[in-house]
Design a protein around this nucleic acid. Sequence first.
DNA 1: ATTAATAATACTATATTGGTATCATTAATA
DNA 2: TATTAATGATACCAATATAGTATTATTAAT
Lengths: 134, 134
Amino acid sequence: MNFISRDTDYAIRALVYMAKMAKKKKDIFTVDEIVKEERLPERFLRRILQKLAKKGVLRSYKGKEGGFSLINSPKKITLTDIIKVFQGEVDLTNCFLKGKICPNIRTCALRKKLKGIGRGLDRELRSITIASLL
Amino acid sequence: MNFISRDTDYAIRALVYMAKMAKKKKDIFTVDEIVKEERLPERFLRRILQKLAKKGVLRSYKGKEGGFSLINSPKKITLTDIIKVFQGEVDLTNCFLKGKICPNIRTCALRKKLKGIGRGLDRELRSITIASLL
DNA sequence: ATTAATAATACTATATTGGTATCATTAATA
DNA sequence: TATTAATGATACCAATATAGTATTATTAAT
């Protein structure tokens, strides 16, 4: 059971690259540059960055000399943010009989326990920022 | 992102039912009985219990008067055990460029951080036993 | 011999994952 | 203003995973 999906993984690599280079260089990056440096599949990464742009993690510039840039400081971008974009909210308490048979998720001993664990996990994932990975 | 899959969920329900009833009653249960009580799809649950039997969580008895029984005390059956049966080892540190491009998982800042979190998570999941859900 | 249970295995439908392809849009600049 | 170099939107596709169902074999009690 993989916790991180391929697009989350690629997104993190791209963001870390951008954060690293933004310190020395200009801060707009083309997909081609990132693909070359990080050796990721071009069209797939393109779609990933587009999604990050749509979700407000990146800003995109169309046209010649365009590309993508970070909107916020790498210190502000957490793992939780990125996972949420590609894999949705991490939900430890999901119930497969919800509504049908189970009376209430709050009376369920399992979900009650998992809820606490999920909160702890989220707190830890939130502590991992792009900046912390440089 | 659902952490628990449907078969893990159904397995837990079945195991909790068996643990609960084993206290008052005989301890061999047919699939039909569990299906009726927990309202789960019969053939699907059957395959789930067979898998639990194969993995040493349940004992199975063929023939008339047969069924399934718990092998170990409900205190000894942890959530980690059950997740492992149906979803494999929970791996927070999986890397999608392993071997190809990434030099070493141990030099990777992200994986290093996730490894610690994964250990904590595992410890917590291990503390949830079937007995603790009664 | 009959009956009532699991075992093994194959099959199916649907969703998700991982990725590719195409064409439209935009903006710099020669 | 035409060219060029970038992203945007969208559709498509293959492989795998998920969530089951169906069939036949085996086993053990009575």
